[in-house]
Write a protein that binds this DNA or RNA. Structure first.
Lengths: 225, 225
DNA sequence: AGCTCTTTACTTGTATGGAAGTATGGCATA
DNA sequence: TATGCCATACTTCCATACAAGTAAAGAGCT
C-alpha cells in the first residue's frame, strides 16, 4: 500500500501569498506599485491580518517592500541583485554541465531534447508563458541529471528577480537565439565534452549581461540601482 | 554634504525575528525544539502578534517550521540542504577565486592575510565565535576583491543552515587545518595563478563533504534527510 | 488488559479595534 | 507668491478576543 498522501488545507494567508507572488512574477503587479492591506483584504473579502502576513512573506521573498506607517510597494527590480544572481547561476550551472557531460544519464538528455522541441513549438505559437516554463524545465533537468535536484530548489529563490525581468524581455528578445544556445549545450553534453559543455553554458548565461542594462534603460521606472 | 542617514526604529516583530535568528544560528535553540507564540510573547512581555510574525519570517529563512494547529519547531538541519548549499558555494567561490587571481587588488589580499592572522590568534585562544566570524570575513573579502559584494549577500541566505552546523563542528574538528587551507588559497591568489587558486578553494570547501555525514551520524536528532 | 470515546488543555489561524506615524491639501500669514 | 501650521485621511503596527484544529490523558466499557 502506498503512503497516504495527506494534504492539509492551506491557510488563507498562505493562499494570498501564493496568489500575490504569482501576480508579481508575471508582471501583473508592476514594480513600484503600491498595495494596501485594507484594499487587498476588501477585494478578497477577508480581514486584514492574513493579508498582512502575506505581505510579510512577500517581503521575505524580496518581491515587496514594507515601509512602516507609509505603505507597501512592489519591489523594483534591482539591477545589482539580478547581476549577482546571474553570476551565481553561471558558476553553478557551469559545474552542473561539467558533471553531466562526464557522467550524465542518457534518458535525462533525451528529456532535455524534448524540452527544446517544446520550445520550438512555443516560439512558433508565440506562447511566451509556455516558453519560459519550458526554459526553466530544461535547466532543472540539467540539475537533476547531475543528481543535484536540491540545488535547483535553492536557485529558485535567487531566480525570483530574474523571472520578473524575463517576462519583460521575452517579448522583446529573440527566442530562437535562446533555443540555439540550448541546443549547443545539449550537443556538448551528448558528446561527453565537459569543456565544451561548460563553455556553452557560460555563453548562454552571459547573454543576460547585455540584456539587463538594456532593459533597465528602456524602462527605468521598473528598476533600481 | 552627505546624505543624512535616517534610521527608523525597527518594529517589535523585526527585533524578535533578529533575536530568534541569532539564537538559532548559535545553536542556542537546538534543532527540533518546540517554540510557542504564547510562551515567547509572555517571556518578552508583548502580545502574540509580533511574535507570530517573527515566526513567519523565521520559517521563510528555513530556520523554523510552522505546523498549523500543532506547533512551531526549530528546523532540523537538512543534510541535503547543507550539501546543495556547499555545492553552490564551491562553484561560486571557485569562480571568485579565479577572478581575483587574475585581477585582484593587492590591498584586499593584505586584508585577507590579516584575517588569517586573526584566525591563528582565535585558535590559540580557543575563541570559537571569533574564529567563525573571521572565517566568514575571509570569504567575504574574496567576494569584495572580485567586485561581487552582492554575491556574498545572496550566499548568506544559503549559509544559514551551514552556519548552525559549523557551530557544532568547530568544537570538534581541527581548526589549524582550516587555517592552512586559507593560507594556500591566499598564496595562489598572490601568485596570480587562477588554476591553483580555484583548486585550493575547491579542496577547502570539499572538506565539508566528509564532515557533514560524520556530524549527522554523531547527532542524529539534530539532522534530517 | 485493551479498546473507544470524551474531556480538556493546549496549538496556530483569523477578525477587529485602536495606537502611532506619515503624506496631503487647505488655510492663514508674511 | 511663498511659507508655515494644522486638520484629515490614509498607512502599518500591536493588542485582544474568538474560532478551529490537535494531542494526550482519563473514564468507561468489553
Amino acid at each position: 500500500m502506498d503512503i497516504a498522501r495527506i494534504t492539509i488545507a492551506p491557510s488563507t494567508a498562505s493562499q494570498v501569498h501564493d496568489w500575490l507572488r504569482k501576480r508579481v512574477q508575471r508582471g501583473d503587479l508592476p514594480p513600484g506599485m503600491r498595495i494596501s492591506e485594507t484594499e487587498v483584504a476588501a477585494a478578497i473579502g477577508i480581514s486584514r491580518q492574513p493579508v498582512r502576513e502575506a505581505f510579510i512573506r512577500l517581503a521575505s521573498d524580496g518581491l515587496a517592500e514594507v515601509r512602516p506607517q507609509r505603505g507597501t510597494y512592489i519591489s523594483r527590480i534591482s539591477v545589482s541583485a539580478v547581476l549577482s544572481a546571474r553570476f551565481i547561476r553561471e558558476a553553478v550551472e557551469a559545474d552542473l554541465a561539467r558533471a553531466v557531460a562526464e557522467a550524465g544519464p542518457r534518458d535525462m538528455l533525451d528529456r532535455m531534447a524534448d524540452e527544446i522541441a517544446r520550445q520550438h513549438r512555443a516560439d512558433e505559437a508565440g506562447n511566451v508563458e509556455e516558453f519560459i516554463d519550458s526554459d526553466d524545465r530544461f535547466h532543472h533537468l540539467l540539475a537533476q541529471a547531475a543528481g543535484q535536484d536540491a540545488v535547483w530548489a535553492d536557485l529558485e529563490r535567487l531566480k525570483a528577480q530574474m523571472n520578473r525581468l524575463r517576462h519583460l524581455s521575452m517579448r522583446v528578445f529573440d527566442r530562437s537565439f535562446t533555443i540555439g544556445q540550448h541546443q549547443a549545450i545539449l550537443d556538448a553534453l551528448r558528446q561527453g565534452d565537459p569543456d565544451a559543455a561548460e563553455a556553452a553554458m557560460r555563453t548562454h548565461l552571459r547573454q543576460m549581461l547585455a540584456e539587463v542594462p538594456q532593459m533597465a534603460a528602456a524602462q527605468p521606472d521598473c528598476f533600481t540601482d
